[in-house]
């Protein structure tokens, strides 16, 4: 078997089978133990009355799912999550695009812009939440102080249900826009320079060049960034839990937080598992939709 790559004899292929699975064995072990099994177990759990206290009313069929679909808190959490997803995805894509277009003009001190815009992304959610909770403080907060200078009355950032989600969106944009900015910047720097040279020979200005060359070239990148952002925003938990705790009155509670609370505060693991699978189904639908739209485009 000195040339197992070339000779496709039975000895070689047997050795390949052995080597292939042996190389993958460590990954597969962790994969089965801490991904596949929990998913299966979670699915089983969602059909039972399992609780955190150990009591288990056994197999309950679709009762958990039926309850979830008639649970107003489930629907409001899902609604909040979708609202946050739309409200955060739009600025996170547009601001990132504007930042990247700006830096890609060929500004001096490239490292400075990347550092300033991207640095917040490296922070843990708790650090971001501490910063913003402090700035949103009703009496001592920087935001209301600064808004006061320009004559805008104090905004009840954390206590008004119609404002609270935007409070979260602002913190989120500051925190994570740098990531999309980097993806856009990398994509822009991949646009062949000849395109621009030809355009400037034709007398196209910077705006023209951006709208007729850069933007069309960024189409596939934009689709990717939007999809990834939607999937990331749907999973929102940290900053909401830390800044508003889901309040006021559940106005910012996300679906992941509702899963967390039914499981760990309400002790109802079975019900909580069922809600998490409803959430999973939603993610799956969006992912499958994306795969199909990809296929249609490349076909």
């Amino acid at each position: 078997m000195s040339s197992s790559v070339i000779v496709r004899g039975s000895v070689a292929s047997r050795a390949n089978n052995l080597h292939g699975w042996a190389f993958c064995a460590p990954f597969i072990f962790f994969f089965l133990a801490f991904l596949v099994w929990p998913i299966i177990h979670g699915l089983i759990m969602s059909f039972t009355g399992q609780t955190l206290t150990g009591a288990n009313s056994g197999f309950v069929g679709f009762a958990n799912y039926a309850e979830a679909f008639s649970d107003p808190d489930m629907w409001s959490s899902l609604g909040n999550t979708l609202y946050f997803t739309v409200a955060s995805t739009i600025p996170l894509v547009l601001v990132a695009l504007a930042m990247a277009a700006l830096v890609n003009m060929g500004l001096p001190a490239q490292w400075l812009w990347r550092l300033s815009f991207f640095a917040p992304f490296l922070l843990a959610s708790t650090v971001v939440s501490l910063f913003f909770t402090w700035m949103y403080n009703p009496q001592l907060g920087l935001f209301n102080e600064l808004l006061g200078f320009v004559g805008i009355g104090p905004i009840p950032w954390l206590n008004d249900p119609s404002v609270a989600m935007w409070t979260i969106v602002i913190a989120t944009v500051w925190w994570t826009v740098g990531f999309n900015f980097l993806l856009y910047l990398a994509a822009m720097q991949n646009v062949p320079a000849q395109h621009y040279e030809a355009a400037s020979l034709d007398g196209a200005g910077r705006w023209r060049q951006f709208f007729s060359i850069t933007l069309p070239q960024l189409g596939p990148t934009t689709v990717l960034i939007v999809i990834l952002q939607i999937l990331a925003s749907l999973k929102v938990f940290d900053q909401i839990y830390q800044i508003t705790g889901g309040g006021p009155g559940g106005a910012t509670r996300s679906i992941v937080q509702y899963v967390f609370e039914t499981g760990f505060t309400g002790y109802r693991l079975g019900y909580s598992a069922a809600i998490s699978f409803i959430f999973f189904a939603l993610i799956l639908l969006i992912s499958i939709g994306q795969i199909f739209s990809n296929r249609n485009r490349s076909a």
Partner: peptide
């Protein structure tokens, strides 16, 4: 395919495990 699985779906069974 497993890239699709969102980590929050795992928290309940993982904690139990």
């Amino acid at each position: 395919g497993s890239i699709i699985i969102p980590p929050p779906v795992l928290i309940i069974p993982l904690f139990y495990q």
